[in-house]
Design a binder for these strands. Structure first.
Length: 730
DNA sequence: CTAGGGTTAG
């Protein structure tokens, strides 16, 4: 842009006046859509010097330029230069006010006009549509004394923009019956309506009309057709259209680029991208965002910095996906840098960017900064509110989240899910069910994401009955093809102890991901089906592309430990880092200690603890101690007990209890008393065993120390009866 | 060579 400005400034107007004017005009037009204000102002200054600034068409282009950059002072200045009412200038001001959302000002300008033309009317129609005032816009549409293709197209496009695709098609039918001929722009909007409705056949008949109207070689129509075929999942037809095109533009290539990515061919897409003659911000943005969606965050960031270096201004969507990548990477530092840059170019007020920034800060645990971003967005939409609510929920700040939820001007499914997932996060599961009920009462429907939260709440409270109900609901809502719902159900059944159902759901899933495998292996292992867990793990390795993660390996080790497959467990443990690339954590090591201890290989267990790279958990010592006690290895027990005592000094009651039990089994009663005294002094209390039953959706819980149950007298009576029976048997 | 309508992504 700067280069063409320079070449213009060097032109001698005296030599070729017409060429000069032509060039300034086209440059001014470019500057009002893409260029910076500074470049425009430079050109303005130059035009004044050349004595051209009073030319009517130059002045109007300048006015548009200033209006696009919201320079009110300069715009007013130009308006004043016109003597009295000017239709064109007035139209420009209506359009600008529409763009800024000053609907009242636009209406006022419209009303005070002495004379209106078709452009005045179409500006009102499209402007009102842009701000969702469909009814009002259609009123202007009906009153318009100069219906033209532009106003018809504005109406159709506006309806499509507002999601009223059926109404848009109806308007298109009316257009066909009128004497106005649709043009390629009209057709592209109609195609969009067909695409959004998912109506493939209608799209095909519209394409027939477009061909009849003589648009078969129109680039934009071909582009629309490519999109239509891609959305309908027919890439080969899209390819046919592409091959037949005589002329292709950046949009065409970008659509084809996206086709390659959809087919999973990132490399092919990249090569198209590199060979494109021109790339616009959308082409960059597609490439970058798709890298991010496929998990190649670093590559995306490299491409982003290249884009900035090559002078393409990142679009709002591009910036928001880059921020999204940074929040995934939890790259707070880089994110803050980018935020500073965004502030500098004044883009922080856009809702897409603002919401992404809120998300970034909240995902990095900084809800305070997130709130500051939220407060700085002048016109917040439901997404901004949702980001903030989910941000607080994510960090367990439910008081703040609830407050925001109450104050939210609008709520959608995501708002509710934000709050619900927060209650899952902090473990208030009864709130989860209550909140979902409220949500359903408010007329919102269950979504897949609600299901994740619900199933998680069922798993955590072992509410099998509720879980089964939700399973039925998921079937009814046709959610069973979803991996997350399937995985949630598998986990729910496993956590509720119904391993058979868990396995059934898992087996019926069409595509299991890493999480699904983790959940089923963990479920089998923890419910005592150790052999099956290991079998399934081996099946996964041979038949699936899923890769083991920390938790899955922990479950496999756990299964090995509980089924006595010590050597297999050890092999897996030692291959963790080399084969799976996962560093063993303290919990993995504890599993190995437990495995060795259980099988009586006490000295090996001791040696293993000594050789560990991470600090042993107190549970590792406890496992060894427990085995020593059982096998009567008093010497090692004493040694282990001392280590455990050091660790439990500031730790939980479990270690103390274990020690006290060991002393008891050795008959050292004074030591036992000492331990109990220590525990009492420190206020340590063993977390009691807890059990519960669910009667008519109400959970009644019992604690091992809680002899009398006040919640339900019948239960206490039954318990008393059982105790008596046990005494008789004894 | 005065102003207004659209396509690809998010």
């Amino acid at each position: 842009m700067i280069a063409s400005l320079r070449s213009l400034l060097s032109l001698q107007p005296a030599v070729s006046f017409t060429a000069y004017v032509d060039k300034s005009l086209s440059l001014l037009k470019k500057l009002s859509t893409h260029g910076s204000l500074m470049e425009g102002a430079m050109l303005h200054g130059h035009l004044i010097k050349m004595g051209l600034s009073s030319e009517r068409y130059v002045t109007i282009k300048l006015l548009i330029l200033y209006l696009k950059h919201r320079r009110l002072r300069e715009s007013e200045h130009i308006r004043e230069a016109f003597d009295g009412f000017d239709l064109v200038v007035h139209n420009c001001f209506i359009n600008a006010n529409m763009e800024w959302g000053n609907l009242n000002e636009a209406r006022r300008l419209f009303d005070e006009m002495l004379d209106r033309n078709e452009i005045t009317w179409s500006t009102m129609i499209s402007g009102l549509m842009r701000w969702g005032k469909v009814k009002e816009s259609l009123w202007y549409f009906g009153k318009n004394p100069f219906p033209s293709v532009v106003s018809w197209t504005a109406g159709i496009t506006g309806l499509v923009q507002n999601g009223l695709n059926f109404e848009a098609l109806d308007l298109f039918r009316k257009l066909l019956r009128s004497c106005v001929k649709p043009n390629s722009m009209t057709f592209t909007s109609v195609f969009k309506a067909c695409i959004e409705m998912g109506n493939f056949r209608l799209g095909m008949s519209v394409s027939g009309l477009a061909v009849k109207a003589g648009f078969q070689h129109s680039v934009s129509i071909s582009n629309s057709l490519i999109t239509l075929f891609l959305r309908m999942g027919k890439p080969s037809l899209a390819k046919d259209v592409f091959d037949r095109m005589k002329e292709r533009d950046t949009v065409t290539w970008t659509a084809i680029l996206d086709m390659y990515i959809d087919a999973g061919d990132l490399v092919g897409a990249r090569s198209i991208f590199e060979n494109m003659l021109t790339r616009n911000e959308v082409s960059w943005s597609v490439m970058i965002s798709r890298y991010i969606q496929n998990g190649h965050h670093e590559e995306a960031l490299m491409l982003f910095s290249r884009m900035v270096r090559e002078g393409t201004k990142p679009s709002i969507s591009c910036l928001s996906s880059v921020i999204c990548a940074l929040s995934d990477l939890k790259a707070l530092h880089t994110g803050t840098n980018l935020h500073a840059h965004i502030l500098k170019v004044g883009m922080e007020t856009y809702v897409f960017i603002g919401s992404a920034l809120i998300d970034l800060y909240c995902k990095c645990g900084n809800t305070r900064e997130g709130q500051l971003v939220f407060d700085s967005i002048p016109s917040k939409n439901v997404v901004c509110w949702n980001s903030m609510i989910s941000g607080y929920s994510l960090n367990g700040q439910m008081v703040e989240a609830e407050k925001m939820f109450q104050n939210a001007p609008a709520r959608d499914n995501i708002t509710w899910n934000g709050i619900i997932s927060g209650y899952v996060e902090i473990g208030q599961f009864d709130e989860v069910f209550e909140c979902v009920n409220e949500m359903l009462l408010s007329g919102e429907v269950l979504s897949k994401s609600t299901f994740s939260s619900l199933l998680c709440a069922c798993s955590s409270t072992a509410s099998l009955e509720k879980g089964r109900n939700f399973h039925a609901k998921a079937v009814k809502l046709a959610f069973m093809g979803d991996v997350y719902v399937g995985t949630g159900l598998t986990d729910m059944y496993a956590k509720c102890g119904d391993v058979i159902s868990s396995r059934k759901v898992f087996d019926r899933m069409t595509d299991q991901n890493d999480f699904s495998w983790t959940v089923i292996i963990q479920g089998l292992a923890e419910n005592g089906f150790a052999e099956e867990a290991i079998e399934l793990f081996e099946e996964m390795e041979t038949t699936s592309s899923a890769t083991p993660n920390e938790l899955m390996l922990l479950s496999v080790l756990f299964a090995c430990s509980h089924s006595g497959m010590v050597d297999k467990g050890l092999t897996i443990f030692y291959s963790m880092e080399t084969v799976y690339g996962i560093k063993p954590s303290g919990r993995h090591c504890t599993c190995v200690v437990d495995m060795l201890s259980r099988s009586g290989r006490l000295s090996e267990a001791e040696a293993f603890i000594d050789s560990m790279h991470v600090t042993p958990e107190s549970n590792a010592w406890a496992a060894l101690l427990s085995a020593c006690t059982k096998l009567g290895n008093e010497k090692l027990a004493e040694k282990t007990a001392k280590k455990l005592l050091v660790l439990t000094e500031r730790n939980s009651a479990a270690g103390h209890v274990l020690l006290s039990n060991m002393y008891a089994s050795l008959g050292k009663w004074t030591e036992v008393l000492k331990m109990r005294k220590v525990m009492k002094e420190k206020g340590l209390k063993k977390t009691g065993g807890c059990s519960w039953v669910e009667v008519k959706s109400i959970v009644y819980s019992f604690y091992s120390e809680d002899g009398s149950n006040s919640q339900l007298p019948e239960i206490s009576q039954v318990l008393e009866l059982l105790r008596t029976e046990m005494l008789i048997v004894e």
